[in-house]
């Protein structure tokens, strides 16, 4: 029997260079759901995700994937269970879009093996899924931000892993590209764990939201329970209205008008 939760994080504590980054973080990621992680800058979102794809070692606590502690799994096997798109991936040399997506097959191929037909099929399919097929021979250095991020998602999808970890995938993207990217994540039938800055995107695309502050979980639950004016004030230090989205009914965050908050005159706020 497989456990109900794809990913279970318990008492996760991380210290880097003598500083405590995460403190007893714990939550579960139900199978097949999109779980968002929100929190101010420096809350520990990236560190938490790095632990999940085993880039950063944790001192205490455990992370179990399908009921198994991930440090007990060989790295290659873990990479077949969890695919990740870290933040700010560098591109050395002239990797083509196809090279990028094909890298997703690394955990599946042996030392001397070329890509077999099976791998090529998956690479082609992933190029199509993230809509970069027409760019396959283009150098990554010539891509726009949206194309680049889609190619990186394509690489993670090519890993063919049931769990997808994304670290702020919508950073630097325009509105249409943000939506397109999260739509692709939503179409992914597996489980997703996504750090996300934009609270409204988080509310719209996540089934479940975990709020981090200063390396600890403040609360977690469905968006409508988590995203309240009180929480936004406590955690993000902004005054905001939360209204139901006119179409989806999901919570929508509208920060208070500048004028009301700071008492600046109306003309100034118009100029902003």
């Amino acid at each position: 029997m497989t456990p109900e939760h794809a990913l279970e994080i318990r008492d996760l504590t991380v210290e880097l260079g003598g500083r405590r980054i995460l403190h007893e973080v714990g939550f579960t990621v139900p199978r097949g759901e999109v779980v968002g992680i929100i929190g101010p800058n420096g809350a520990g979102k990236s560190t938490l995700l790095s632990c999940v794809y085993r880039h950063i070692a944790y001192q205490r606590g455990e992370i179990t994937v399908d009921g198994r502690e991930l440090r007990t799994l060989p790295r290659r096997e873990l990479a077949r269970l969890i695919a990740a798109v870290p933040q700010d991936t560098p591109f050395a040399f002239d990797l083509t879009v196809e090279d990028i997506v094909a890298a997703g097959r690394i955990p599946h191929t042996g030392a001397f093996a070329r890509n077999r037909d099976h791998d090529r099929g998956i690479i082609d399919e992933c190029l199509r899924r993230v809509n970069v097929e027409h760019l396959r021979h283009r150098s990554a250095a010539t891509l726009s931000g949206g194309e680049r991020q889609r190619a990186l998602l394509g690489r993670a999808l090519a890993q063919d892993a049931p769990i997808l970890v994304l670290d702020e995938p919508t950073n630097h993207l325009d509105l249409a590209n943000q939506e397109q990217l999260l739509e692709l994540v939503h179409e992914h039938t597996g489980t997703s764990l996504v750090a996300i800055h934009d609270l409204n995107l988080a509310a719209e695309y996540c089934d479940h939201i975990v709020v981090l502050r200063d390396g600890a979980v403040v609360t977690d639950g469905p968006p409508e329970r988590v995203l309240t004016p009180e929480l936004l004030h406590d955690v993000f230090r902004v005054r905001a209205h939360v209204v139901p989205h006119p179409e989806s009914g999901r919570p929508h965050v509208i920060t208070s008008a500048r004028r009301v908050r700071s008492g600046v005159d109306a003309q100034n706020s118009v100029r902003q």
Partner: peptide
């Protein structure tokens, strides 16, 4: 090949 994408991605690729 994995190292070309940086340490974080290399780790994610096993």
């Amino acid at each position: 090949n994995a190292l070309l994408f940086g340490d974080a991605t290399a780790a994610a690729l096993g």
